[in-house]
C-alpha cells in the first residue's frame, strides 16, 4: 500500500477579540491507500478543525499537508440535501459547481444511486426519503466527484441509534467497494473501533495526538459484526481510558 496523504506539524489558531485560542497543535499523521482512520477525542477538542483544514474550508496557521494529485471529498454532519432539487440533481451538485458535468459522469452517478438502493428515487425530492436514505444520498453526492480520500465529520450524529448502525454499515460497505480511503472524526468510540483500521486519540484542546491504536480484530468484518469481535471490547476500554473526561 502506498501513502496518499501526509500531515506534518499542523497548527491552527483561532482569533477572537478577547484572545487567541490554539485549536490544533503539532498534529501529524499519514494515510495509506484504502485505509480507514478514525479520530476520536473529547468534544470541542478541535477534531473537526483538522478536517476543515484538509478540505480547504479553513486556513492552517502552520505545518504542511501533502496529498499529491489525490482528490478529497467531504461528508458533513448533516446530509444538507437541497429540498428543491431531486435526488439525482442533489448528487450532481458537486459536478455542476466544478463544471465537470458530462453525460458519462451523470451515468456514473445514476449507476451509484441504483447500486445502493436509490434507483427508484432519482426524481424524488429529499423530503420523501428516510434519514438513512438521505445520508446515503449525501454520500453518493460526495462520491460523484470521484474523490480518493473521504473526510467524514461525525457523519451520522444527526441520526437515531438504529439508523446510525445501519448507515455506518452502508457507508463502510460502499467505501470499501469503491476502494476509497477514509478519515472519520467521531466522538463515538464504538463507531471508531468498528470502522477504523487505526484510531487516533486526541487530547483536550488544543488537540494533540495522545495515542494511536492499530485495530487488529480476530475476524475483521463489517462495523456491526466487528462490534461482536472479541478484541472489540479491549480496544473500547483502552480508548475510553485514554480520552480525557471532564
Amino acid at each position: 500500500m502506498s501513502k496518499i496523504l501526509e500531515i506534518k506539524n499542523l497548527k491552527k489558531n483561532y482569533h477572537t477579540i478577547q484572545k487567541e485560542t490554539c485549536a490544533v497543535k503539532d498534529f501529524s499523521m499519514e494515510l495509506e491507500e484504502g485505509e480507514f482512520v478514525a479520530i476520536v477525542g473529547p468534544s470541542g477538542c478541535g477534531k473537526s478543525t483538522i478536517l476543515s483544514i484538509l478540505s480547504g474550508l479553513e486556513e492552517k496557521s502552520s505545518g504542511t499537508i501533502s496529498y499529491g494529485d489525490k482528490k478529497i471529498g467531504y461528508m458533513l454532519q448533516t446530509d444538507a440535501l437541497f429540498e428543491w432539487l431531486t435526488i439525482l440533481e442533489n448528487c450532481l451538485l458537486g459536478l455542476r459547481i466544478k463544471k465537470e458535468l458530462t453525460e458519462e459522469k451523470k451515468d456514473y452517478v445514476i449507476s451509484l444511486l441504483k447500486k445502493y438502493g436509490l434507483g427508484d428515487f432519482l426524481d424524488s425530492y429529499p423530503n420523501h426519503l428516510s434519514g438513512g436514505m438521505r445520508q446515503r444520498v449525501a454520500l453518493i453526492r460526495t462520491l460523484a466527484t470521484k474523490p480518493d480520500i473521504l473526510l467524514a465529520d461525525e457523519p451520522f450524529s444527526a441520526l437515531d441509534y438504529q439508523s446510525r448502525l445501519t448507515i455506518s454499515e452502508d457507508v463502510f460497505r460502499i467505501l470499501k467497494e469503491e476502494k476509497k480511503s477514509l478519515i472519520l472524526v467521531t466522538h463515538d468510540i464504538a463507531e471508531a473501533v468498528s470502522m477504523g483500521n487505526r484510531v487516533i486519540v486526541l487530547t483536550k484542546r488544543p488537540a494533540m495526538i495522545k495515542k494511536e491504536y492499530e485495530i487488529v480484530l480476530e475476524h475483521p468484518s463489517t462495523p456491526i459484526e466487528n462490534r461482536k469481535d472479541k478484541a472489540f471490547s479491549y480496544y473500547y476500554e483502552e480508548i475510553w481510558k485514554e480520552i480525557d473526561h471532564e
Partner: peptide
C-alpha cells in the same frame, strides 16, 4: 440560509456567485 449547506458548497470549492445561484436564491423562493 443553513450554514451547513453553505459549508457543503464550499467543500465543492463553489465560488460566491455559485453559492448565490445554486443555494441562496433557490432556497429563498
Amino acid at each position: 440560509v443553513d450554514s451547513e449547506k453553505i459549508k457543503l458548497m464550499k467543500t465543492f470549492y463553489a465560488k460566491k456567485w455559485q453559492i448565490w445561484r445554486y443555494l441562496i436564491l433557490p432556497s429563498n423562493a
